[in-house]
């Protein structure tokens, strides 16, 4: 029991350290990829190929003045970024990150807590993460912030139903809510991946995932061109950085979810071992998010509502119904 607790704490610290480092590294990757897609070079001068840009940004964020606007609700203003960052990491607790492996003779399961309701827990935590932008926008006494938080509420009420319903069909097929069961269900190679059985569910999930992580086609909360910086208008320094770390950690989580649920998880893939396979898959989804950001324009909040409630939700319901019928026959 003691070993279990110590192991869990070590795993939690490792995940926290690695994912937050990756989230920081994600900003560098994003800038590079966006630059390449616009035929620019991106950050080049801090370190070789600008690799140390990350450290420079970190130093800048840490040393920047951290101010709280007068008239803001101080406690909630300080609380909001913590919510975003914390929930993003809590959501990762139920995600199996790599296949099991042996380290110094101890079998290590790279999942912090194997809940048998893993998917629901991850989705619930990521949903709770939207309280960060909401509270940030409402507490800062800034009209742009208020608009940003109003948009947060709209976005949340739009995509949440689609996420749940789109995942319902794969859950029905696998018959479990645990992500490890999902992984084991698809262990038979590339033809057993759930994407072939549930292509529509995958498309719906990835759209909802983009909305969940506030990535570009649905980047309404912080739409620079329309509402200055939305919920983050009054934030500076590390508080602002925490919003960013939360956002990138959420992107990584969505990548893991998509890879685990639809793309065979961490089963070995031909000659590629499982651990590398899932990292490749998650990297692809991360790249996809940046790729889409470079290519597509934003949409309006009313268009997001229209899309989610009038197009995606009926499609998801039809998908669930058809899956149910197919399973009965």
């Amino acid at each position: 029991m003691d070993g279990y607790i110590v192991g869990t704490i070590i795993k939690a610290i490792l995940v926290l350290a690695i994912i937050s480092a990756l989230a920081g590294f994600g900003t560098y990757i994003e800038r590079k990829i966006l630059a390449f897609m616009q035929r620019r070079l991106g950050p080049m001068h801090v370190g070789p190929y600008g690799l140390l840009q990350l450290a420079a940004d970190g130093i800048k964020l840490f040393t920047k003045e951290d101010f709280i606007p007068s008239g803001a609700n101080k406690f909630i203003f300080m609380l909001a970024p913590v919510i975003t960052a914390a929930t993003a990491f809590i959501a990762l607790a139920a995600v199996p990150l790599l296949p099991e492996f042996n380290l110094f003779g101890i079998e290590v399961r790279p999942i912090i807590s194997d809940l048998n309701i893993g998917i629901l827990f991850v989705l619930g935590m990521m949903a709770a993460g939207l309280y960060g932008p909401l509270l940030a926008g409402m507490s800062q006494r800034n009209k742009w912030g208020l608009l940003g938080s109003a948009r947060t509420a709209i976005q949340f009420l739009s995509y949440e139903v689609v996420t749940g319903l789109s995942l319902l069909a794969p859950i029905m097929i696998v018959g479990s809510l645990s992500l490890i069961d999902f992984n084991n269900y698809q262990s038979g190679g590339i033809t057993h991946w759930l994407i072939w059985q549930q292509p529509l569910a995958f498309i719906l999930f990835i759209i909802a995932g983009f909305a969940e992580t506030n990535r570009t086609p649905f980047d309404l909360l912080e739409h620079e061109a329309e509402i200055v910086a939305g919920y983050a208008t009054e934030y500076s320094g590390m508080r602002w950085g925490m919003f960013f770390i939360g956002e990138y950690a959420n992107m990584i989580t969505i990548g893991f979810l998509a890879a685990l649920i639809f793309f065979g998880g961490f089963n070995s893939w031909g000659f590629i071992p499982g651990g590398l396979a899932i990292i490749l898959k998650v990297s692809f989804f991360f790249f996809l998010m940046l790729w889409v950001r470079a290519s597509w324009p934003h949409i309006r909040p009313d268009q997001l509502m229209w899309l989610c409630w009038k197009v995606l939700m009926p499609l998801a319901v039809i998908n669930v119904t058809l899956t149910g019928l197919w399973m009965m026959i």
Binding site: L123, A127, A128, L134, S149, A153
Partner: peptide, 18 residues
């Protein structure tokens, strides 16, 4: 379920409060 349902419900309440 408690988590998901109440996160959404209170979010709607926030919208009204706003």
């Amino acid at each position: 379920v408690q988590l998901i349902v109440y996160v959404g419900a209170v979010m709607a309440l926030y919208a009204f409060g706003m």
